[in-house]
Design a protein around this nucleic acid. Structure first.
Lengths: 126, 126
DNA sequence: GGTTGACTTACAGTTAACTCTAAGGTCTAA
DNA sequence: TTAGACCTTAGAGTTAACTGTAAGTCAACC
């Protein structure tokens, strides 16, 4: 019989506000309703949301996620299109990882430099 | 005799608007002026800006960068404080790298799954 | 000596991604 | 039967980080 918005909010870590916002904006396809008009999420929604989180947290803007999700509705004809999007995004993630690693090294150098300054200061006090 | 804002904008890739905004907000310490009141950047500014870019691009909010930079003015007493900030940030970058790597794998699985669906579709057409 | 171009300030506007409020419906437990 | 917990919508408000505009100064070129 499906999950309430509260449950999905807890399971995904996205606020109820955000879930409604995502549906409004078309990031999430229309969620089905129960007899009272309340949202009724299913396992497919949960699965899609997990992919959406993944895309979002790796820096894909929601406009682009929306595009990806809208291809979902077009079925098999759109599969290669979706693959292209994912592959392009994966390359971006990999670039980001490279960036982050080089930044981490840079920060390391800065930290080492700061430590050497501290040692100097201590030496002066003697 | 120092660099103009235009030069610095080109060297750092930050817009002139952004550079002024950073100074206004205290992300950048007060930049010295020439006899006409125009900003006159020096190599130290350039160096600090390169660290600022690095912190920003690895996800540090500018409010926190501001805090880090304000410690700069306090000289040697603040060094260990600055180190702590950098070290904490480095840990965050490393966590992000982990995250990104696991997300990249997840996207890989999705791509593989999509490819298998495509193969299926082709097989059906025979 | 007028125009062009780079700069200045103060302040208003924009964008993305939420986040909240108001006003209301429905169900359950005391 | 009423208080409380849940949900709904429409639409307004917030936040971070810029980005743009307006009005003005100054120097260099034609």
């Amino acid at each position: 019989m499906g999950y309430s918005i509260k449950t999905i909010s807890q399971k995904t870590g996205l606020s109820q506000y955000t879930l409604r916002y995502y549906e409004r904006e078309g990031v999430l396809p229309e969620v089905s309703r129960d007899e009272h008009g309340n949202r009724c999420f299913h396992d497919e929604d949960l699965e899609l949301l997990s992919l959406i989180r993944c895309l979002k947290d790796t820096g894909m803007p929601i406009a682009e996620i929306k595009q990806f999700v809208s291809l979902e509705r077009e079925g098999r004809e759109a599969l290669s299109e979706q693959c292209k999007l994912l592959e392009a995004h994966k390359r971006q993630i990999e670039e980001k990882i490279q960036f982050f690693q080089s930044f981490a090294r840079k920060i390391d150098h800065k930290i080492a430099y700061f430590h050497s300054l501290e040692q100097e200061s201590k030496a002066e006090l003697k």
